[in-house]
């Protein structure tokens, strides 16, 4: 989750076509975020500078998200009382304190999970 300004910057990325290339950026207090120091249009850089070195392990963010989702599903299957525990945690967050009966239920459920 992100704040309004970061969201605005993400959504307004295409407005650079209106503003032009951002050469200097200041935050909302006028402090410098970044500024272009130099632009060299005649740089001589080796072609392999842009390639991923051979032998590196390759992955993608999409794959990692899928693996995380699978791990969560497996964990939920191994812990059948997890939804009930989650509901209790939500109640705690909403109420700000822990009712004794909820605490007792949680202890019992945790004990059952531990014994499994």
């Amino acid at each position: 989750m992100i704040d309004n300004c970061t969201q605005a910057e993400l959504e307004s990325s295409d407005t650079y076509q209106k503003t032009g290339a951002p050469m200097r950026m200041l935050d909302n207090r006028g402090n410098l975020i970044s500024e272009v120091q130099s632009i060299d249009t005649k740089a001589n850089i080796a072609a392999d500078y842009y390639s991923i070195p051979t032998g590196y392990k390759q992955s993608s963010l999409k794959q990692q998200v899928q693996q995380s989702q699978q791990a969560i599903q497996q964990m939920q299957q191994q812990m059948p009382h997890m939804p009930e525990i989650n509901t209790m945690f939500q109640q705690i967050q909403q109420q700000g304190d822990v009712p004794p009966e909820v605490m007792e239920q949680m202890k019992n459920l945790f004990q059952q999970e531990v014994e499994r």
Binding site: C5, T19, G20, M25, L26, V36
Partner: peptide, 29 residues
Amino acid sequence: LISGFDTQKYSLSANGQSCQTIFGSQEVM
């Protein structure tokens, strides 16, 4: 003039909240 390029000054805001000031160059674009 920034790094030899002309710029225009822009203000970016979200829901009325000032977010940042951008000096953009159409010359570069």
